[in-house]
Design a binder for these strands. Structure first.
Lengths: 142, 142
DNA sequence: CAATTTACTTATCAAATGATAAGTAAGAGG
DNA sequence: CCTCTTACTTATCATTTGATAAGTAAATTG
């Protein structure tokens, strides 16, 4: 088992992960937002509260573009901007009620597709899957 | 360990996979092609020979757009179109010598970053990683 | 407190991508 | 043959995304 073989397996694996993720998430997002806007909302959902700079860095979107998309999301009432009272240059971004609802809906669609996918897995399978995920997360995808 | 918890772990895991993949592949592609063009070339590289219809379906790009991008790739001498002699409506798409070279270069960049990432892993770690990949590929990302 | 830096905004522009309508040419089926 | 279907192309247009220059307002620093 040399490292080159492992690399090839990794390529095939990540391809599969991307394909399945795409299957699970296909059309899960509301049609009223773009892909990038969805990515931003998803990031806010799991990391809130966040600042525009953090979004910019983690999502790899230049600040002016981040600012533009946040403005659009704000106009759609999906997020709330709160100015940091300690440093009035900074902002704290959170999902609005409406934004939470939209993301909850998307997540539950994805989750039910996932449950479908593993409906025939045995308890041992699920244990194995969980362990495998933890190993990879710790040793490879950190 | 209920399925909902497993779902949350999966979400966090796929996020990590996407992030690390992005790290490994960042700037690996030549600047002379777009992201979509790179995806198409990558697909051709691992699946050749393929038809435009297969590319369209697997990459989820509408036929007219697939046709446009293939034309651009052809004009850049990265792929070759061969008309199927049995059915002259069909085409067989392959990488050209130049296309092969470009993809080899991209892959070796990615591979060397991967080797960097696992340079400190022990032999047991690598074994574990390999097994975990196989389990997930078989039981979850099929 | 003047100069600089930080955090974010506004305005533009170009390129990439996606969607749709219409067209060509070859094969398939009656 | 004549029609229908398949595989792909061309043309066009709207939207999204990415890049860059310039601007504002608040904090920091010497």
């Amino acid at each position: 088992m040399d490292k080159n073989t492992l690399f090839n397996k990794l390529v095939s694996f990540t391809t599969s992960v991307h394909r399945v993720t795409k299957e699970l998430t296909k059309n899960a997002k509301s049609e009223s937002i773009s892909q990038v806007q969805y990515n931003i909302l998803e990031y806010i959902a799991v990391s809130q509260p966040v600042t525009p700079s953090e979004i910019s860095e983690c999502q790899d979107i230049a600040m002016p573009n981040t600012s533009r998309e946040l403005k659009k999301l704000s106009e759609k009432n999906l997020i709330e901007k709160i100015i940091d009272p300690n440093d009035r240059r900074k902002q704290t971004i959170c999902l609005s009620k409406e934004g939470e609802m939209m993301m909850d809906e998307a997540f539950s669609t994805i989750q039910s597709r996932f449950l479908d996918k593993i409906q025939n897995a045995s308890l041992e399978d699920l244990e194995e899957i969980e362990q495998a995920i933890e190993i990879l997360q710790k040793k490879l995808f950190y």
